[in-house]
Design a protein around this nucleic acid. Sequence first.
DNA 1: CCTTGACCTTCCCATGATGGGAAGCCTCAT
DNA 2: ATGAGGCTTCCCATCATGGGAAGGTCAAGG
Lengths: 175, 175
Amino acid sequence: MIEAMTIGDAAEASGVSAKMIRYYESIGLMPAAERTASGYRTYGDTEVNTLRFIRRARDLGFPVERIRLLLDLWRDRARSSAEVRSLAEQQVATLATRIAELEAMRKALLHLVHACHGDGRPDCPILEDLATAPAPSAGPESHLPASRRHGPPSAPGRRGAAGRRFAGRPAVPRA
Amino acid sequence: MIEAMTIGDAAEASGVSAKMIRYYESIGLMPAAERTASGYRTYGDTEVNTLRFIRRARDLGFPVERIRLLLDLWRDRARSSAEVRSLAEQQVATLATRIAELEAMRKALLHLVHACHGDGRPDCPILEDLATAPAPSAGPESHLPASRRHGPPSAPGRRGAAGRRFAGRPAVPRA
DNA sequence: CCTTGACCTTCCCATGATGGGAAGCCTCAT
DNA sequence: ATGAGGCTTCCCATCATGGGAAGGTCAAGG
């Protein structure tokens, strides 16, 4: 009956695109699907359920690597719900962090938008801010967004800041 | 003076990594920097100011393509502040959308977390939800997150849903 | 039986913004 | 003159996703 679906059927039934199903298989998130004699992947209810699980977890923002852990727990009948909840809490925290970052951006920008009269004249506090604002976080090493911008913006005292380079010496015409 | 900085100096002064400065140049966000006879890029105050502008805009979440527009307006003395504000408003809207998506995830997940006792027993509403929850948006085509998940999850009536494929026919031993 | 069209397969490429690292050249201070 | 630490370009990786090409398969209709 519902057994032996093709990848397209499984995609439709699970809400995961065929492309992604293959991808999940390739990274080992899904066990390799069985194949027909001619090489077509086949899926049954079990697999579709797993796919739905994955899709739902993705919808909750879980990155694939965390979904891997969730799947392990799902299959492990000896799991403790505490482990599952811990993973979920981590995810909530990740989301909260990201939300806070975006919210800070939105707030700052909204502030600027409100300060801009937005008429035909060229004066605009938004551009002025972008052009002149100093480093965003004023005080000491504080709440720098935990995501992106990891690279140390400065390596202290490496070579003075005085500009004494290139005092007009046109040597070596480059290859 | 402060003229003729190397890319490293400009990076330190602007808060944009040397790697990104080269990247911005490569995609035409920055005009190609001047070079010394030996091929080193050189930067002056003007360029550093532009870099700071870019960095600040990135900090506000502007994608590079929108920054390109902002820079055009910045340089255009005949701009109207309304154009600038419009761009900023779009960005606020983009952020708000993203925030709403993440917030929805966080809320849903938090709900599940609260329902899970999180002790040594294996029963867990979180896993149960992931395993059994239907398509996330219940009612009619509603607030599907505007980002990601664009692909139409189903193309209506193409080929019936009955599973009648692969009725045991081991043909063609696949090369 | 053969064609047709809708599927399936694999493989490669692109996204956006960022970093890592290699191989090789350049500059400056010792 | 040498060595450290810049700089240059080029390639690769990320993360999850889609696009598309080239070619095989399958079911149905003529």
